[in-house]
Design a protein around this nucleic acid. Structure first.
Length: 570
RNA sequence: CGGGGCGUGGCGCAGUCUGGUAGCGCGCCUGCUUUGGGAGCAGGAAGCCGGGGGUUCGAAUCCCUCCGCCCCGACCA
């Protein structure tokens, strides 16, 4: 394409609304423009790049035998009522009504529609397994869209769904996706890794997230270099840093005054014991029912774990009034002694076997000392602790590390949740009705672009991997008024096109500096500069990412580039 | 939803405190010169100062109200 005819509105200054690097560069490089919060227009360059990502995904999905389909973005409410998610999802779902007042929603994921489709058509085990996928807009009314394309209200998703006769079949489908996802992200040139993940509102047993480490990410990845362990922090387990030995005495609990001391830190510095000797008492409300959750004073609650243990749909901290009603004291003076069996008490496993700890007395301004779990209160011990940097890995015993990352894909074993709730059945080999077992698998296309930019940029702009850059190479004549340069540049452009290379020809009547700056900004991986050297038959070949430049013969440059592109094309 | 910030030509900003009829840089258009890392000179176009209401002789500026955008938190497949 000839740059002079294209709409690539680059900016010298980043608009003030942009904070993260990828957002700034997407705007500056003329990739996107924002329509309103969480809604973006994709301009020519972004669309080209997304098309390439789409193509890679399509090739790899087709390669595992998945079949591409397309379902409507607007869904009738009935389907979502059938699965129960019309009520459980809440404000994240865009809802609307048609002219007759019938409830509809915009698709945020497609388990319901795909299960409906399967229900109408699948009759026999002989038709299984099936994997159906689509690449389509998804809508989620995020409470806070942010960071450019990172968290938006309309995005493009590759979503696929597998239907198998039994668990081992699902294993197969799951493995196929796992492999396809690795190949997709490899081909997109991302630094990424699969991690064990929390299956959240999707339900189901096994789940992996594919994450791209990046400071701009919103998720935390827990990893251990020695064992290779990697998990989302929502799911991660590790051994906590040990607490000092407890006092061995066998004294009963004793109340003492702690006027105005509310946080663990305040109480600890008041009573002189370390935070690890305190019990943090939280009152959570799970589907309307109060639960007491206990943690070591220096630990934090992992709500995802708790939600999983309780199988709760909705989990929230208790309101201050509720604390008064249930506990007789406010936050900062709560404790488990004397509370059971009225309230269910869950204690984090780090409290198991501990003695003589300090907790709130359920009287404002008072705490108890010499509190021993198991003796002074009964609790069920569970893992509800949020893993922290420096905790010890279960396998290797080495410290784990926390890193921020961007979630780019997620695969779930759904089990029978949707086939049961929506009554999907096929006949098995004995002529008996059975529910197929399902999996669902998603990739966010814009997240791939965002992660690629976050991972590949410098002060000059983006340096996208060749496989997903909008163009593979830009041809830059330094001075178009120089006939020899103009002619050579035209010829290289034509030859590159003939060779099937995705080439952008910067034929604009701009000075060389402007062209270089723009080419760097929009992130084209290779640049061929046609300048004064052309009198000796030389052009310059520049690698965007490394900024390394070398001379090449005019007649060699096309094959030189073609060779470099080979690994990016498979 | 709670807290904070912002809204002035396409982009970045000043002007608002102390009311007097809008300015700077970049970009854009025309011409000439220039041509290897965002050129120079000359000329030019472009703004209901987010919307509405009020105060005032007079409002970008003061008051009320609504809207939008960004950040932190809550939330989040």
């Amino acid at each position: 394409m000839r740059w002079s005819r294209l709409f690539i509105p680059t900016l010298r200054d980043a608009p003030a609304e942009a904070e993260v690097i990828s957002h700034k560069l997407l705007l500056r490089a003329g990739y996107v423009r924002q329509l309103s919060a969480g809604f973006y227009c994709y301009l020519y360059l972004a669309k080209r790049s997304l098309n390439k990502i789409e193509r890679i995904i399509r090739e790899e999905m087709d390669a595992i035998g998945a079949q591409e389909v397309y379902t409507p973005e607007v869904h009738p409410a009935e389907l979502w009522k059938e699965s129960g998610r019309w009520d459980s999802i809440g404000h994240d779902m865009f809802r609307l009504q048609d002219r007759w007042g019938r409830d509809l929603c915009l698709g945020m994921t497609e388990e319901e529609v795909m299960t409906w489709l399967a229900k109408g058509e699948l009759r026999s085990y002989k038709q299984l397994p099936q994997i159906w996928y689509q690449i389509q807009a998804k809508f989620r009314d995020e409470p806070r869209p942010k960071a450019g394309l990172m968290r938006v209200r309309r995005f493009t998703m590759k979503d696929s769904y597998s239907f198998d006769l039994d668990a081992s079949g699902l294993d197969e489908s799951y493995k196929k996706h796992y492999g396809a996802y690795c190949r997709i992200f490899d081909r997109c040139g991302l630094d990424y890794l699969p991690v064990e993940a929390h299956s959240g509102a999707m339900g189901g047993s096994e789940s992996h997230e594919f994450v791209a480490p990046s400071a701009a990410g919103e998720d935390w990845l827990v990893e251990c270099a020695d064992s290779g362990y990697a998990a989302n922090v929502e799911k991660a387990v590790a051994r906590p840093k040990p607490a000092p030995e407890d006092e061995p005495d066998e004294n009963p609990p004793e109340e003492f005054d702690t006027p105005g001391k509310k946080t663990i830190e305040e109480v600890a510095s008041f009573d002189g014991l370390p935070a690890t000797s305190h019990i943090k008492t939280l009152v959570m409300v799970a589907d309307g029912k109060p639960i007491l959750v206990l943690l070591r004073g220096d630990h934090g609650l992992n709500e995802a774990k708790l939600e999983g243990i309780l199988q709760a749909r909705e989990l929230r901290p208790a309101h201050p009034e509720e604390l008064g009603d249930w506990m007789g004291a406010g936050a900062g003076s709560l404790g488990p002694v004397g509370v059971g069996p009225k309230l269910k008490i869950l204690a984090d496993s780090a409290l198991e076997g501990r003695k003589n700890m300090i907790c709130g007395a359920n009287k404002d301004g008072k705490h108890l000392r010499n509190v021993t779990p198991g003796r002074d209160f009964e609790a069920e011990f569970v893992d509800v602790r949020q893993v922290e940097d420096g905790d010890l890995d279960i396998q290797s015993g080495s410290p784990v590390r926390l890193r921020k990352c961007i979630e780019i894909g997620h695969i779930f074993k759904l089990g029978y949740r949707y086939s049961e709730s929506m009554h999907l059945r096929v006949l098995d080999v004995n002529g008996k009705e059975v529910a197929p077992i399902m999996g669902s698998y998603g990739i966010g296309l814009e997240r791939i672009l965002t992660a690629a930019i976050e991972q590949n940029n410098d002060e000059g702009g983006m340096a996208l991997p060749a496989s997903i850059a909008p163009f593979e190479v830009v041809v830059t004549p330094v001075n178009l008024k120089d006939e020899q340069q103009a002619e050579a540049a035209e010829r290289i452009y034509a030859d590159l096109k003939t060779a099937g290379i995705d080439v952008l020809f910067d034929d604009r009547a701009e000075r060389a500096g402007v062209k270089f700056k723009d080419a760097d900004l929009i992130g084209i991986p290779y640049r061929i500069v046609v300048g004064k050297g052309i009198v000796d038959g030389n052009v310059e070949f520049v690698d965007r990412a490394s900024r390394q430049a070398s001379d090449a013969k005019l007649e060699d440059v096309v094959s030189l580039l073609a060779e470099k592109l080979v690994p990016t094309r498979s």
